[in-house]
Design a protein around this nucleic acid. Structure first.
Length: 330
DNA sequence: ACTACGCAGCCAATGACATC
DNA sequence: GATGTCATTGGCTGCGTAGT
């Protein structure tokens, strides 16, 4: 059976092709009776617009690219929260999402953008010196970054204010009377790569600790139980007076708690723990935490990209972190 | 003023035909 | 036979306008 085109709908409804187009796009007023006749024909014939033809005529693909590197040390559940939120929000703006991983490198981004396959790009896991950033400046298509590169001039970026997040955690522990605190961060490779959020959390944490005259250390943290356990043991061997720990590593949170238990240190009686992680993880373990608002970040990123597609100015956004106090700190 | 129509144009792929 | 030129094709959008 031949696919149904807009011409079939027009014939069936007894109107012009352009009238059908206007009914469907809503860009011009069409009388209620004509409108209903067209919509009935659409339903009866089972018409769906041809995306290729629509892109040809409108110069809009109604597709955005989500560039997601899937590098070592990334936390997949959090990444999926972002991706889900991006796809759902894009649908609200009548856009679909093309998922790109990093295997193809900058060439892949260039190819997809230059071929008019997508109208705009969303980049996740942006590094401080991201090689993709210079490319984005040259591209005709608008883009939004989730994460901040070193030089964000002329770019639209969205992120949680991780510097503040690190500081808030240190401040909370200080207010609860802790004098010696530690940050267990992302895996080492993440710092070596220059991923902004990891570095900024550490900087904010250490700066706030210095400000409040605390003794503070920050160490990277792997994700298998054995590695976490030995890191935690080393930490307490080196700093026996440690009573406050901030964990900025979703995958390691559970292991850190297990390792503390194994060392005979009770939470929160002996050690207070603050996590920077999605709410569901913190909720499950009743941890005091700063939420990573993946859902909101994805939504805001799409919103900004859509604004840019409409030619509107779109400034960068830093979301203010919020601390939720649960049972793991005292 | 309002409604709906006609038609040019969007761009890459393909076919028809001419030239080397 | 390979190569070049040009018109046509596809589904849809949106400007300009005819008919009330």
């Amino acid at each position: 059976m031949r696919t149904v085109t807009i011409a079939d709908v027009a014939r069936h409804a007894g109107v012009a092709v352009s009238t059908v187009s206007y009914v469907l796009s809503g860009k011009r007023a069409i009388s209620a009776t004509t409108r209903q006749r067209v919509l009935d024909s659409v339903r009866v014939l089972g018409y769906h617009p041809n995306a290729g033809a629509r892109a040809l005529a409108s110069k809009r693909a109604n597709v955005i690219a989500l560039v997601l590197p899937l590098r070592a040390g990334m936390n997949l559940p959090v990444l999926m929260q972002f991706a889900t939120s991006v796809v759902a929000t894009a649908r609200q703006y009548d856009h679909d999402v093309l998922l790109m991983t990093a295997d193809e490198g900058p060439d892949g981004i260039r190819r997809v953008a230059a071929s008019a396959m997508v109208d705009g790009l969303l980049l996740m896991d942006v590094e401080v010196r991201d090689t993709r950033v210079p490319l984005l400046r040259d591209l005709a298509e608008p883009s939004v970054l989730i994460g901040f590169p070193a030089d964000a001039e002329g770019l639209t970026c969205v992120d949680l204010d991780f510097h503040r997040a690190g500081a808030i955690c240190a401040a909370h522990l200080a207010e609860r009377g802790h004098r010696e605190i530690a940050l267990l961060g992302a895996p080492g490779v993440v710092y070596e790569r220059g991923t902004g959020f990891a570095e900024r959390t550490r900087a904010g944490f250490l700066a706030e600790a210095t400000e409040r005259d605390l003794h503070a250390v920050a160490v990277p943290c792997a994700e298998t139980y054995d590695e976490v356990a030995s890191a935690v043991k080393l930490l307490f061997d080196a700093h026996p007076g440690l009573t406050g720990v901030v964990v900025h590593n979703e995958a390691a949170v559970g292991h850190v708690l297990g390792a503390l238990r194994a060392l005979g240190r009770a939470v929160p009686e002996d050690v207070s723990v603050v996590a920077i992680c999605p709410d569901d993880i913190a909720e499950r373990a009743r941890l005091t935490s700063v939420l990573i608002p993946a859902e909101e970040l994805g939504r805001e990123a799409v919103r900004l990209l859509m604004a840019k597609l409409d030619g509107l100015p779109a400034g960068s956004i830093l979301l203010e972190p919020r601390l939720t106090i649960r049972e793991s700190t005292r």
